[in-house]
Design a protein around this nucleic acid. Structure first.
Lengths: 223, 223, 223, 223
DNA sequence: TATGAATGAGTTTTCATTCAT
DNA sequence: GATGAATGAAAACTCATTCAT
């Protein structure tokens, strides 16, 4: 029956939207925002120039859509990966590797993000902002668990930990772009987590140990 | 005498160069690379459009000049501040605060940096690359001292430390751009250094554990 | 019916292309290449500046298009006129007059031709080169007939004849531009052909000289 | 003594003028009018940009000066060569070869000539026009001699002969620019003169020769 | 809905010419 | 006379966006 094969009108529209976002992602990631032309995106999406404007308001809106989808997918794959792993440490390691991989693969699209005016109130209420927070919260949940488990110093503030985690990776990724050794990712992630997680909940400073020994001595003397 | 007041032709040229770089810095920082127009920069520098091209080859060359000067100044003020402080910890704290202040103040100019093609060999031999390295090496020297003094875990690799340091700050700065509480900078820096430097010179090495175990044994022996 | 009046989209596009080439021809012919501006051509074609670039890649491409059309038309009218005439001499006379008329009417456009880089291999494979050759070959065919008929010295090389024919006319046309007497064209053409064709089929070649010498000898022998 | 070594002020000015014309000739001939910049000419002449304007009114004036000197030199060398040769034919051959050599060597400068507005009355009274005529008259004198000697058909008009002579060579030179075989020049010149000079005042057609032979026979038989 | 031809504002860059020194 | 820094008009070209079909 026709109905079974034929896509409904809604499905066709949805397909087109996906095709446009795919094309835009590819072109933005290849050329950056300024050099990506709407015409090329339209061509790559198999659509006429004018058709783009039935799906997005303008170029900025399109890039927003691309970023939104990127964050949504990022969040989903991140959460799925976290759920699959056992143990907070394993979850963190997965998140780190996953983030670096994606950042490196979508570098130029992510470079565009700051070009979008985020200072406006509009941004705070935007879908993009919400998606960004959703992604961050995947990390936050795992990080909180890590703190609860004493993997991280108990007096650590979550936002600082988060900035170190993502900041270090993105900074590092930028460097790796030019050196391009894929195995570096794992080495870097291991090292990074080593540093972030090394600090025990009970920070064993010399002072603390000193007190522990005093206690032990007292126990000895006493008993 | 006229000669004393009057600027020589060379001085005037030098002044103009500064005026142009100042204007370009301001406009790039306000609008970003793409939306900054040569005409506006010329106007702000008090100079005709064509005059710009007596000082720079083209727009890209101009932005390179702006970045070069920025890094040169950054390096100089960083080094001077480091020299003035006593103690590695104080030096690091200064570097961190200094970096954050400058990053926040010149946010959009710094966003332009990645747009410059860094993959080419030409870049590696460029003035900009050298200046970049000069700035990083200010940090590297202090960081090495910190490691030598046991302020940082002895098994830490310098480049990871560097990525965490700069990465965390730049990531954080990006967030702070929207929240804009200046006192956050200090709080963040303190926290960041607390984490990076927390790792005790005497970490829970086998030695300490050994002593704890002896204590336990003694207690056992008692009972 | 609307359909009968209304031009199809394709027809409109074709009309525009003609309008643009017409406008470009006129402006180039009036001002020469350097002083002809794309803006003026656009205005004359009744089209926006940007529209030009939907039809041609750039200014050089536009001038190439103008020249191509000129040569194509020149070839066609030349061939048609040749076909209509009877007798090689009449054909040549037509070709000469036709060429001079067209050269004078399109003087400045033709001046542009040498500005196009002809040394490259690209040119040799270009449409323009082919059109040029097509036009020349109209002359060549008639010239060969003239030689076969003994209207031209039998030892004449075609390419020299061609250079004299076209060269003389173009040189002369340049002079006439300033004097501007239209009736000069015919006088000149008659004279030119008189010279080119006067040379008898039997010219004082070695053969002729040989016979003359025999005659002389015989006379000598007599005396 | 200073006076002997030092050039007078007038000599220095004259030297500069020559240096400027030399530089301009070279640059115009290399790049053509549009792409030749006053700055490059100044640099090549070892003079400041502004200094050019002490010697010429503007770029067009400079190109006029270059052309004027070119024609003056051309005329001089042509006349000198003509004087040195014996025999009208030899003189013509020299003129032809000389012209082709010079035209080919100064091709791009000569392309500029038509860009100068010649339609104005100003041109007719200009130095350039006079120089042009002077050069042509070198040819004219020799051509008249050729006609007087019967080397050229007696009913030939001088101006047509002139157009054929110069026209053929310039047209041919244009072609040779791309093929670039230097020996072609001589071959072409020989061929060209062969054609122009072949036609005797009394054209010796086969018919004429036949009658001459009959006469000879009769003389033989008779005497 | 879809098309794609048309638009025209906006940008960078060049360079002949001027003029204060 | 000589300089060369400064000028600013001019010009080619791009491309996001619109709208008649």
């Amino acid at each position: 029956m026709a109905k079974q094969n034929a896509k409904t009108r809604q499905e066709k529209v949805a397909d087109r939207e996906i095709a446009i976002l795919d094309a835009a992602s590819a072109v933005f990631n290849e050329k950056g925002y300024a050099k990506a032309s709407m015409a090329e995106i339209a061509r790559k999406a198999g659509v006429a120039d004018g058709t783009l404007y039935l799906y997005v308001k303008n170029k900025e809106d399109l890039v927003r859509g691309v970023l939104a989808r990127f964050y949504a997918q990022l969040t989903e794959t991140a959460q799925r990966g976290v759920d699959k792993r056992d143990g907070t440490k394993a979850k963190l390691k997965f998140l780190a590797r996953h983030h670096m991989r994606e950042v490196i693969a979508n570098w130029r699209v992510l470079e565009i993000a700051p070009l979008i005016d985020r200072s406006s109130d509009a941004y705070r209420q935007s879908e993009l902002y919400a998606l960004n927070r959703a992604y961050v919260s995947v990390f936050d949940r795992v990080a909180k668990a890590a703190m609860a488990e004493g993997l991280v110093r108990s007096d650590t503030q979550l936002w600082v930990l988060r900035d170190m985690f993502f900041g270090a990776m993105e900074y590092s990724a930028r460097t790796m772009m030019f050196v391009r050794r894929d195995d570096d990712i794992n080495a870097f992630v291991d090292h990074l987590l080593g540093l972030l997680l090394s600090a025990p909940a009970v920070s064993p400073t010399g002072d603390v140990l000193f007190r522990l020994e005093r206690i032990a001595e007292r126990l000895e003397g006493k008993s």
